[in-house]
């Protein structure tokens, strides 16, 4: 693939997935600087590896996988500030994140969610926020579908337990949620 074709392919990928990836990192970082660094590093990786990127639906999963590791490096304090994305950093700083939808139920779910461990949170967020299915998560995490199903089931059960801990009426949702999986876990 020559340089013009690479650029065209990358542009298609960038156009198709930038918003999803920004949403992914935005939801998992507390700061515009971290989000800008993560998105810049993720797509810089994609550009450098453009000849290796999987096609079709797996492109997005591949990008999520890179972003996930970039964010993990940030949490370990081992990532660097990038010189890229200067304007993007300013835009994200200025962008007003809409206030989360209020409501007793949602607040309870948020509290219960925050009580989970990082791995549970990430799994449940991939389903509830990014809308990924079991097979996609398995591809993203590099494990079997069965393992993802089991881990998801346990994460949901722990979320249901936490809902009880925060005194939410919604704990009944959690109980119901775990019932069908009892026989399979």
């Amino acid at each position: 693939m020559g340089p013009p074709e690479r650029r065209r392919l990358f542009e298609e990928i960038y156009e198709a997935h930038y918003s999803d990836l920004l949403t992914y990192v935005w939801r998992r970082t507390g700061s515009p600087d971290d989000a800008a660094d993560a998105i810049a590093e993720t797509f810089t990786t994609a550009w450098r590896r453009i000849d290796e990127l999987p096609e079709g639906r797996e492109t997005r999963l591949w990008l999520y996988g890179v972003a996930r590791r970039v964010l993990a490096n940030q949490r370990r304090g081992s990532s660097r500030r990038t010189a890229l994305a200067t304007r993007l950093r300013a835009e994200l700083t200025a962008w007003q994140d809409p206030a989360p939808t209020a409501g007793h139920d949602r607040d309870a779910v948020r509290r219960a969610f925050r009580l989970l461990g990082e791995r549970d949170r990430e799994l449940l967020a991939l389903v509830g926020w990014e809308g990924l299915d079991t097979a996609e998560i398995a591809t993203l995490l590099g494990c079997s579908r069965g393992a993802v199903r089991l881990r998801l089931h346990r994460a949901r059960r722990r979320l249901a337990r936490n809902l009880k801990l925060v005194g939410s009426d919604l704990a009944t949702y959690g109980v119901r949620a775990t019932e069908p999986a009892k026989g399979t876990s």
């Binding site: 935005w26 994200l92 994140d97 809409p98 509830g128 949901r156 919604l170 949702y173």
Partner: peptide, 25 residues
């Protein structure tokens, strides 16, 4: 049910494809 509950708590998406995003490209 529980996935649906969780979906309702998703933080807002970022600002999407902005000028800064195109400059980054």
């Amino acid at each position: 049910d529980i996935d649906h509950l969780l979906a309702g708590t998703a933080p807002a998406p970022g600002p999407g494809m902005t000028r800064g995003a195109r400059e980054l490209f």
